[in-house]
Design a protein around this nucleic acid. Sequence first.
DNA 1: CGCACATGCTCATGCGCATTAGCAAGGAGG
DNA 2: CCTCCTTGCTAATGCGCATGAGCATGTGCG
Lengths: 343, 343
Amino acid sequence: MAPRVTQQRIAELAGVSQTTVSLVLNGKEDSARIPEATRQRVLDVINETTYVADPAARRLAGQANNLVGIFTYEHAFPSETSDFYTPLLTGIESAAEQLGVDLLMFTSAPVVDGRRKILHERSRLRLADGCLLLGREMDADELQQLSESGYPFVTVGRRDGENIRWVGLDYKSASADLASRIIEAGHRRAVYVHLSLNAESSRDRADGLIERLSSSDVAVETAQLKDVSVEQVLDLVVSAGATVLVVEDPTEAETLHAALRAKGIAVPSQLSMVVLGERSRPQDQAIDFTRLSAPRIALGAAAMALLHETLNGVDEAEEGLPEQQLLPCALIDGSTLAQATAR
Amino acid sequence: MAPRVTQQRIAELAGVSQTTVSLVLNGKEDSARIPEATRQRVLDVINETTYVADPAARRLAGQANNLVGIFTYEHAFPSETSDFYTPLLTGIESAAEQLGVDLLMFTSAPVVDGRRKILHERSRLRLADGCLLLGREMDADELQQLSESGYPFVTVGRRDGENIRWVGLDYKSASADLASRIIEAGHRRAVYVHLSLNAESSRDRADGLIERLSSSDVAVETAQLKDVSVEQVLDLVVSAGATVLVVEDPTEAETLHAALRAKGIAVPSQLSMVVLGERSRPQDQAIDFTRLSAPRIALGAAAMALLHETLNGVDEAEEGLPEQQLLPCALIDGSTLAQATAR
DNA sequence: CGCACATGCTCATGCGCATTAGCAAGGAGG
DNA sequence: CCTCCTTGCTAATGCGCATGAGCATGTGCG
């Protein structure tokens, strides 16, 4: 095993001091006064030896390392969750590449009961300059504690709580806009099937949808597939006399759509459907739901950018990014929302 | 922001020296002689303060950090390549979680001309204890250089070259077995559409397939879709009088299958097809090719395990893992290989 | 000709930890 | 009572780097 090439070694080869090598590599223009000839000599030696600075030493000496931690509350890669994480990671990776930062995935925190805990593994957090938190639901206490410790982080998704930096999606507006379309189509009774309202994103969707519908006196019954069966949802639709079924989760929407077809209920001629989300991977045979489309790749990239700015300060020329920001969602017309007909 | 808690601080609170704290935390039983009372006092203080060691300092002092680097030659997450990387990363993540290691993704190395370079100026490779290298093709020189530097790494996929640790897939055997089925089905002329033979995995497939076919005097014409069009491939099939079309890449296989259908050539009644790979995400409308199926999740996990063993030595009870290992692929009968008929 | 000042570099130090050498105190053995 | 060994701890050092202080030269100016 070849002995490690250090700045000291470079210095010897170039006939200068270790300090000079360090200054050549990262001396500020003003404070360091190294003539071009010396600088070039050092750089030549560095190129010959393919020297790379030891990141551990840099960090110990008080440098940022351009290392951003990624904490996912569930496994990041398996296909069950990849629909959720993959587009975010895509955006994060591409932004990270542009910014020149590496990504530290905190996989060592074991997933217990389907969730990871940050604080248990706080130790590793310190290696990264800051951290991106991903997950549908997060523990507010943990977040608060982390925030108070002064550790820089940004969450992907809007979060309740003080002084937390996040980039989220404007589900509330988009859901309200879809509600408006439902109203314009003349519907008077709706059923909304949602996920757990523990997540801010789910509350935002529910709020946007229901507030708008209620303001036009459209009646809304709600249900959660976690609690009731598909059949019970269909029964609810019938008993409520609903003409439109709004579903938060696109996968559940497909399940319900299939169940409707099996029961002989045609969409949208007999029942309209509206979905408050979208599969991230377009399927070959996907149903063209009337839905909202969330810019998740952009979301990942924006979160990365905000964290980077938090760590490195605002670019001279640029304006600072807002500490909390909602990205707009697109509405997709689709073909599952029709004019309401009396039933 | 609270000042960082260090061993020094712990030492003051416990009324001992920094050395003692370090010894309590990781002194070997024999060399350190700390009475239970002192040990307990130190541990109590550590618990109260939630002290954790700075990983950068540990590394600088020559310690391993349970950090494994992941280097991908292309972007890891976008959907174009995710078919390739996702199953590997799934296996890696789950193995990493079991072993308690974090994953450092080297995203800062910019992708140039579609490829990343391992050894660039600010490479943070050394922050990780060791590294997993993923990619279809790798630069042999870079690999050799890295190997000589003594940096521990394992490549996912078989590699030519001395002293390189890898875990690969036994494409050669599996391809040969598929060739045997082709022979048993009475085919005498074949066309093989493959990817660039720069990759070891592609060479293995080509070798296994062609050696076996040739040994039974089955004629094989080869082509690469990078060089020729789909139409030219179909022309080649006709002009060669082939009764079976073997395709390395599953996506290309789908393209060719569609082209055949468009031309009115029925598979497998008029032309058999055999594929030397598989989409990692089963599509809804996927064609049930006669093919080989590669255990890619297991591959990722095995590579992680080998690297971990390289870094931490062999477990007492266990046998050591081989430094180079091929995992067997499964054969899937499918429905696209039929008995040859005279044309 | 002497002083101020700029230029080009080096010395010394510390980041937080692991580790080696070794010191002081106490007990056993002769 | 002196030696030798053990026990319980600490001082000192170095890992590779960044950085503030500072030391020689040279150069301009009065």
